[in-house]
Amino acid sequence: MAETTATEDLDHEGAAAAEFADQLNDTPSDFVHHEEHYTSLGLSNMKLAMWLFLGSEVLLFGALISTYLLSKTRFITELVAGNPYVIEGISNGENGALVNEMIAEASVEPLFDIPFTSLSSFILLMSSLSMVLAHKSVTEGNYKNLRIWLSTTMLLGATFMAGQVYEFTTFYREGLTYDGSLLGTAFYTLTGFHGAHVTGGLIMLGSLIYLSFKNKMQMDRAETVELVGLYWHFVDIVWVLIFTIVYLIP
């Protein structure tokens, strides 16, 4: 097929293609024998798929966070006074002012325990660091360290989840139920979705640790560790957003 030449006005492209074909010809024709399959982007299919999946997840969390933000303008007084309150339109500045006034007047009784959640957020962020170290270990062939760092990551993640469960229980006891108010529904749904993603990550980490102990997670599988790491970092970043939006911004 190489005898075909470009006949159209796409000369420069033709040249590029010829160069490309030359490169291919330099390699053995059965280039698929290489460790990595040939791909057009030079990125493995798995990794590309993971990035695409995470892109989709961005929209999932984007929609959930937007929902929370939209709802937030409507239960903001509930946060400070436990008083369900309906305002006309989100865009209505007049009402916004009225709400602010009400907040100012209300006796503020914060629901969230910011220091506690800050600590658990810090723990989750640290797990990203240990995940990086785990990936580094597997690329270096240091399987002992791989197990250590994977276990550390999993432990930190589990601690975070324990914190979430504790926090949920406390809120529930204080009267913030799922079905009792818009705040309850929006809060538990958003953080619950994140929690489910963390749990999924923990299962993945557990599988990696198990495989590693069985000596089935070696250098040739480094990409798998990397993929799990990608997912784990994504979940962490999402938490940073959620923490900021739900807990820090009044």
């Binding site: 989709s56 997840e57 984007g62 929902t67 709802s71 305002i87 079905d179």
Partner: peptide
């Protein structure tokens, strides 16, 4: 686009099956 629909449908599912309040005007939702 699908994840956005998924979110909308999950919110509806939570509302309908688990008494959520996302679309419950009584609770101030929009």
């Amino acid at each position: 686009a699908i994840p956005v629909l998924t979110v909308a449908q999950l919110l509806l599912l939570f509302d309908r099956r688990f008494d959520g309040n996302f679309f419950n005007v009584d609770q101030g939702s929009d």
